[in-house]
């Protein structure tokens, strides 16, 4: 039996050949290495993300998350609902909070769920981000103890971003300078960039698509600060942060006359590589900007 077991909510970007395909693949690889079993919620739906309000009001948006929560409770009772996407996790937690606190919302959501024979009742599964599960259920020391190929000599900027950090955050961390990603980097034998200025800055989120010029300006600062700190690469816990910071560097270079070529990886890729998984298993082939130093570790 696996050491840990979770009800898994991957989210729209973490589907086969979707924008965070590399996150999905490296998550499964990491969980295999850590003896974690992921039970994907059958027929989960989109959480509405942070842009859904343009089309859906409060009750429809919360109903979306409520459906996932109800399905999780039904299919995987007694298991925490674990999301890898920051927005999925945040929407689910927000929905649970609102259902708990607002009678009107609860009434509307249950009326909507009733249409499909579901209901929010009894104790709801605890919604957690994958990094929470790693930190709280396994811990940094144990994570470090399983490392087979330490990421020695690699300097990494831990870019926490927004939605795993605010408004809920990781227990015991501050909003302005959370340390969990740095600890995770160090547990894998790499060096964390000290005082990474843009650690909790915003990548512009969904506005990267609708307001690209404003988005590029924000991302430029995030990458520049990583270079200033001497980083070889950036690591992030969020699929939209990864996409926004990695994939527009060519356009940013054109606009700002910069020469950025900064790899941006997921924590799940760091752990997967350090635990001895192959480059393919760790989804290093999913990087637009190749991450040679991690590839080298996998070839050791």
């Amino acid at each position: 039996m696996a050491k840990k077991e979770y009800s898994f909510y991957p989210g729209c970007s973490s589907q086969k050949k979707a924008s965070a395909d590399n996150y999905l693949r490296s998550t499964y690889s990491m969980c295999d290495a850590l003896d974690i079993k992921l039970n994907e919620i059958d027929d989960w739906n989109c959480c509405g993300a942070s842009i859904g309000y343009a089309g859906g009001g409060e009750v429809p948006r919360i109903a979306l998350s409520a459906r996932n929560v109800a399905l999780s409770a039904q299919q995987n009772p007694d298991q925490d609902l674990v999301a890898t996407c920051a927005a999925c996790w945040l929407s689910t937690r927000e929905a649970q909070e609102r259902i708990e606190e607002n009678d009107k919302v609860r009434e509307g959501v249950n009326a909507a769920l009733d249409e499909i024979g579901l209901k929010i009742e009894g104790e709801q599964p605890k919604a957690r981000h994958m990094v929470e599960a790693l930190i709280e259920d396994i811990g940094f020391d144990e994570l470090a103890s399983g490392v087979q190929k330490p990421l020695e000599g690699i300097k990494i900027a831990g870019y926490v971003g927004c939605q795993t950090n605010r408004p809920f955050g990781i227990a015991g961390e501050s909003f302005e300078n959370p340390k969990y990603l740095d600890h995770m980097i160090e547990s894998m034998g790499a060096q964390a960039v000290d005082r990474y200025d843009k650690k909790v800055a915003c990548c512009s989120g969904a506005l990267m698509f609708s307001e690209p010029e404003k988005g590029h300006a924000l991302v430029k600062d995030i990458i520049e600060a990583a270079y200033d700190g001497g980083a070889d690469m950036i690591v992030t816990p969020c699929p939209l942060c990864q996409m926004n910071v990695e994939s527009y560097q060519k356009e940013i270079n054109k606009t700002f006359k910069t020469k950025f070529e900064m790899p941006v990886v997921y924590y799940s890729q760091l752990i997967s590589v350090a635990y001895g998984k192959s480059a393919k298993e760790s989804a290093l082939d999913g990087q637009i900007i190749p991450v040679k130093q991690l590839e080298d570790v996998t070839n050791k």
Binding site: V59, G108, V109, E115
Partner: peptide, 8 residues
């Protein structure tokens, strides 16, 4: 489900 939520 969404239709019902919207009506509400």
């Amino acid at each position: 489900m969404l239709k019902k939520a919207q009506e509400f």
